[in-house]
């Protein structure tokens, strides 16, 4: 039990469970399955971008990717345009999305490495450019995803939403990469002390490059899925994921100081962020009160998680 409590990710799952139970208390247990299903569907998008943001934050202080919303919008827009609602083009669309992710990630890292810009500023400035490209290519048109892709994005297998399955697979892949691969060790080492890692022979810049590519690819895939899920790309579809991606990482117990990532917590945080809003909704709070409570709860969790954790 004490080992369980000391796990930083336990708090996000407890909070998500608490929000779930409080909602159920109101409805006397009706709609539990539906609520869980909705939380898994909507939480999946936050979890996918959160996993990327988690890896970037693990790189150490100052590493944050602010271009996630713009990359999501751009990849959703371009992928759906490329597919043009024609059946059988789903994989081609996914390819376009991944290419957008690789391009954006490469550009972000080029700004960070070649121009030595702080990542916050580099990704912020680059995101303005991506957003512009999305606006230019979108032209207010709403291209519908191919039928099969829309069915996949909104469908389920074994009672679990497909998008959540994608999110779970990605989480497992990233968890294995971080915990079991040499690259994951390098990432953690760079995040703990970049100078020491470099002196120990870790190819620090390569690790950073791969991380910035990975976060953009994850954001692009999330954008592709979200656009298919909601029947088309829109220019503000990524907006809420800027704060969301950072919030789920931190609620999940990943250290904001870097060098310490936490995959299960990201999913816990993503479920929590959805469940807390639906809980406050079902208790009939207005939009204002709901936001105040959401913010207070985020801060509360951060305080609990950071004071319970053993300080180095």
């Amino acid at each position: 039990m004490s080992t369980l409590v000391s796990r930083p990710w336990i708090w996000s799952w407890l909070a998500a469970g608490g929000a779930f139970l409080l909602t159920m208390l109101l409805t006397d247990g009706r709609g539990a399955g539906e609520l869980a299903y909705a939380a898994l569907s909507f939480g999946a998008f936050a979890a996918i971008v959160g996993l990327g943001q988690m890896m970037v934050i693990t790189l150490g202080p100052g590493n944050v990717d602010l271009s996630i919303p713009a990359v999501m919008t751009l990849s959703g827009t371009l992928a759906l345009k490329a597919m043009g609602s024609v059946p059988g083009t789903e994989l081609w669309g996914l390819g376009v999305a991944v290419a957008v992710g690789l391009g954006a990630g490469g550009a972000n890292f080029a700004l960070i490495y070649l121009l030595r810009l702080p990542p916050i500023i580099a990704t912020l400035a680059a995101s303005l450019v991506y957003q512009s490209v999305a606006i230019w290519s979108n032209r207010g048109l709403r291209v519908r995803p191919p039928e099969a892709l829309a069915d996949f994005a909104t469908g389920r297998a074994l009672g679990i939403p497909n998008v959540a399955l994608v999110g779970l697979v990605l989480a497992v892949v990233i968890w294995v990469a971080l915990e079991r691969s040499i690259w994951g060790r390098w990432l953690l080492a760079s995040g703990q002390n970049m100078r020491a890692a470099r002196l120990a022979g870790v190819p620090v810049q390569m690790v950073r490059a791969v991380t910035y590519l990975a976060v953009s690819v994850l954001a692009a895939v999330a954008g592709y899925l979200l656009a298919s899920f909601s029947g088309g790309a829109s220019l503000n579809m990524g907006q809420e994921y800027l704060l969301m991606s950072i919030a789920v990482v931190v609620i999940g117990g990943t250290s904001i100081a870097g060098g310490n990532s936490n995959v299960p917590g990201v999913w816990g945080g993503a479920l929590f962020m959805f469940l807390v809003v639906s809980m406050l909704n079902s208790y009939g709070f207005g939009a204002g009160v709901r936001l105040v409570l959401t913010g207070s709860i985020i801060i509360g969790i951060v305080i609990v998680a950071s004071t319970r954790r053993a300080r180095p």
Partner: peptide, 18 residues
């Protein structure tokens, strides 16, 4: 409490907005 400012201000942005 040695909290990360980026996270606390993020949470507060919800509070101010509300």
């Amino acid at each position: 409490l040695e909290l990360p400012a980026i996270v606390v201000t993020l949470g507060m942005s919800f509070v101010w907005g509300g």
